[in-house]
Amino acid sequence: MNHTTRVYDSVLDLLPSEENPSPLVRLNRLAPAGSTLYVKLEWLNPFGSVKDRAAAEMIADLEAQGALRPAGQEGDGDAGRGIVEPTSGNTGISLAGIAAVRGFPMRAVVPAKVPEEKRVFLKLLGAEVDVVADAMCPLPGSEDGTIGLAKTHARASSERYAMPNQYENRANVRAHQRTTGPEIWRQTEGKVTHVFVSLGTCGTVTGLSTYLKAKNPAVRVIAVQPSAGHAVPGLRNTSELAVSALYDRSLIDELIEVDHRLAYATAVELAQREGLLAGPSTGLILAGAQQVAGRERVGLGVLIGCDGAFKYAQGFAAELARQDEQTAATGGLRQAQPHVAV
């Protein structure tokens, strides 16, 4: 592969690494005065999100163990052995993309609240998709729901599926130790002072924090979480993190909670004022970074731009309609942006 000419033998050569990092783009209008913020555009990874990293690492592990087999390898009618995974969408899409290239089956178990666009992308990449109704009054840490159905497939059809389990798989952490951390260090020439992340499986925060703090213990890692009752796909409030074994509070300098309604509103600003087509989780992270930058100088902050706007067309449609209504209600005057109060 040649990252200069950008001519490749396989889409998998585009997976991010220190030699082929995802881009860092400076915010020129939305960074509070005196602070410098960059967004790491993870949606430019080949399957559209930060999850490409964990997916590639987990699959490499399974392939090294001989746990995966392309369909047809053992003759006609061999369905192969692939992957089943509970996912809110992005990990599933990354796994399905790699599975499509490698030729093994992929089954994604998603909660009903996952945006329709993500379900379509999963099917577009050839995955079988099971949709599980969201629990009515779920027990914290319960093995019901998506995890229960995925585990059931993995155990009852073990000849057909392995389950990487991104919530417990250390390869998820290793991916960020090996790629995201070193990329940020190299791209900022070691000058990074703050990293802003969100929390899902916690693989990103645990991996990159381990790497960056070894390089410079003064780097501040700040996790932004949506307020309770949120509807930001893929993110978890710490009260919901019982299911992730990868969460390590000691690697996070500060946890800040941001009104979940700012996720879409701030992502709209990213698009309209910076030309960045980021998804709602990146909007939430920016809202958190702006809060911090209003309180302390952020010398060089890096925001993990988890994914792009394309998978949230319906969510953005609703947000834009809400803003139009608000504009009409205030006599055509655009409301002051809600996050600026810091």
């Binding site: 099971d130 599980v132 109704a133 159905l149 059931t152 009852a156 059809s157």
Partner: peptide, 11 residues
């Protein structure tokens, strides 16, 4: 089960 897909997936 509430989720009637579960039995077919594995019981």
């Amino acid at each position: 089960s509430v989720d009637t897909k579960l039995y077919a997936a594995g019981h």
